[in-house]
Design a protein around this nucleic acid. Structure first.
Lengths: 367, 367
DNA sequence: TTGTAAGCGTTATCAT
DNA sequence: ATGATAACGCTTACAA
């Protein structure tokens, strides 16, 4: 039935062929340009996509006509014909967080320079929403996809697999999954940071973490802390593990809660910049001396952290580099080229005044 | 020549017609779905775009097949056929500034709920870059465009005009251009704010403004300040007008410069949140009492401003509302409907501890 | 309600 | 170097 062939070309209404089927004056298109320049559509197409293949003379004439008519090529038609959209999609949990904003910027710059457009969306840390955004992007025909982290909707990766869509997961690096991720090794980073703090003599660690629900990076960081502490026979007490989101207000409130715990921790590790700023600000307003009475460290570096009365020690994730690297790597994949990009980006521990030895503590170094 | 008709349909290579031209197994498409469901492509198309027009039976069968085959409709083809992309483009100067970030979020939510996708780009306050981004968006076939401010590349508006592309300019409202803009009236807002400060008794106004180059909102705000002051026979002294960008570091530096001016201003108006935070932080670190010795006010409200030891008085622009309104208004235009949206959004003056009467000053009230 | 087939505005493959 | 024309994958009259 529906598979039957049908070749009755004669059925076509009279005046036909390819160009200008009837008298309708649609907006300017390739055909109008071609006609006005007295050449074929193929030549105009070549003139813009592969100028060298067209004679100097024609190239100029066509350029002039395009200018005069104000023609803008139709991306949809082009995408349909080439099966490529020259578009890359990126889904971030949020854009208002320091390193994501920096990365988005870097990605856009990198893509722009190579003729690609970036489609940007926010998932608000919601896996379903992320999946939905990704589907949208796939429908829009993106040539590649940039995601954050490795925790996704259970169907997401399979979906991308079936669509044969190149993608890269950013802000994560795990040797075990080399080739799919780009960013810092979250576990290693917090392991190092914790080692440093243990080295200062700290023994009671408070953690104000971002929720690990739908956030594998947060999970990895927590594991890094735990593994380091375990090395020294230490652990985070239950009452010293608090969960927050991304506001200064929460940071303040959780800090207050933390210092009332028994025993009081000697240092507080915060899951992101806002929580740490909140903790710092609250300490200030309570008149608690940092780092003399308690040390505070953050994660991610936003400008205010270095301008507070007691600047906050933190981890600086090279968001720009991660973004640029992700874009480069992805474009290489999209074009079946070899990608010459680093996949692991070391996060830097930025030591500022907010951490020191524990109160009454003594430096204990392994060795 | 190129205008000659050509009707030699017979030239076509053998096996043709419309569907499955040859044996190639391309990815799943509408045709594969139709074939698998034993219906025509038209029916499948209707089943997804206009389900009511298809019998219950078929609708379910088709849905199952789509699911099984994992078909994702091709947006480019759809856009080509419908002449619509269900895509809206937005170009912001930056995303890392409070109100823009909020607006972007709001726009995205509004669009998502109505089946549109948002394309987001940053111009970095550069008019050429803005124009370039807009051109890209037009090529991508956006159905509408969201811009910030009224200052654009000289050819931009004409370009949009010729493309007959609906657009709206956000974060500006000027009764003179009603119908093209949505946001607060920048002139009015700073006029009001200045009146308030004059009312507190201030006479020497320092201004740390954002550059007015390529920034009509900044220009309007400056004019608002000047007009209000003129009403009282006052003016901003040249040495009291400093220009910055958007970093806390600059705010600090310019604050230092400002308080060394002769005479010292009694109040400093900052062009954005970061400059005001910088000023506040610098005052703190210099031990200058705010507001006793000098008052500080900002523009735009970011969380940290209310958490500093002396919270900063500022103007809160309803970025979410502006974004939502802009999206609604634009979609209405795109669909030739009446837009039932407010175009002026009053900015709110958020009074906090950072401003008070001038040192040794007395309250002077007009009237 | 369902099917047929003509576009949508490009690109790309052939010829010439 | 240039021209003719068949796709590209979908929507949508129009027909049945």
């Amino acid at each position: 039935l529906a598979t039957a062939p049908f070749n009755r070309k004669q059925t076509k209404p009279p005046g036909n062929g390819s160009p200008a089927p009837d008298g309708r004056e649609r907006g300017v298109g390739l055909r109008q340009v071609a006609k006005a320049a007295g050449v074929s559509t193929a030549t105009v197409s070549r003139a813009i996509n592969n100028p060298e293949a067209v004679s100097q003379d024609l190239r100029e004439r066509i350029g002039a006509v395009i200018e005069r008519l104000g023609w803008v090529p139709d991306g949809a038609a082009r995408a349909l014909a080439t099966r490529r959209s020259f578009t890359i999609g990126a889904v971030f949990p949020t854009l208002t967080q320091g390193d994501f904003g920096r990365a988005a910027h870097a990605i856009q710059n990198e893509l722009l320079g190579r003729g690609y457009t970036l489609l940007l969306a926010c998932s608000e840390y919601d896996l379903d929403q992320e999946f939905q955004q990704v589907r949208k992007f796939v429908e829009r025909g993106v040539d590649g996809l940039i995601l954050v982290g490795q925790a996704h909707h259970p169907d997401l990766l399979g979906f991308l697999e079936r669509q044969k869509l190149p993608f890269i997961q950013t802000f994560v690096y795990d040797p075990a999954t080399h080739g799919t991720c780009i960013g810092p090794d979250n576990h290693k980073t917090l392991y190092k940071l914790t080692e440093y703090l243990v080295g200062l003599g700290h023994t009671r660690f408070g953690v104000i973490a971002q929720s690990t629900r739908n956030n594998d990076r947060s999970t990895a960081r927590l594991a890094g802390i735990r593994d380091s502490l375990a090395n020294h026979g230490l652990a985070v007490r239950p009452q010293h593990l608090l969960i927050g989101q991304w506001t200064i207000a929460e940071g303040r409130q959780l800090f207050r809660q933390m210092i009332e715990a028994e025993p009081r921790p000697t240092v507080i590790l915060c899951g992101n910049a806002y929580l740490s700023v909140g903790a710092m600000v609250e300490a200030l307003s309570l008149g608690i001396k940092v780092p003399e009475e308690i040390s505070i460290v953050g994660y991610d570096d936003i400008e205010i952290m270095s301008h507070l009365p007691v600047p906050v020690t933190t981890v600086r994730v090279p968001g720009e580099d991660v973004g640029t690297g992700a874009a480069r790597w992805l474009l290489a994949r999209v074009n079946n080229q070899e990608a010459d990009v680093a996949l692991e980006y070391e996060a830097e521990i930025v030591i500022r005044a907010s951490c020191g030895p524990p109160p009454g503590g003594h430096i204990v170094r392994e060795g």
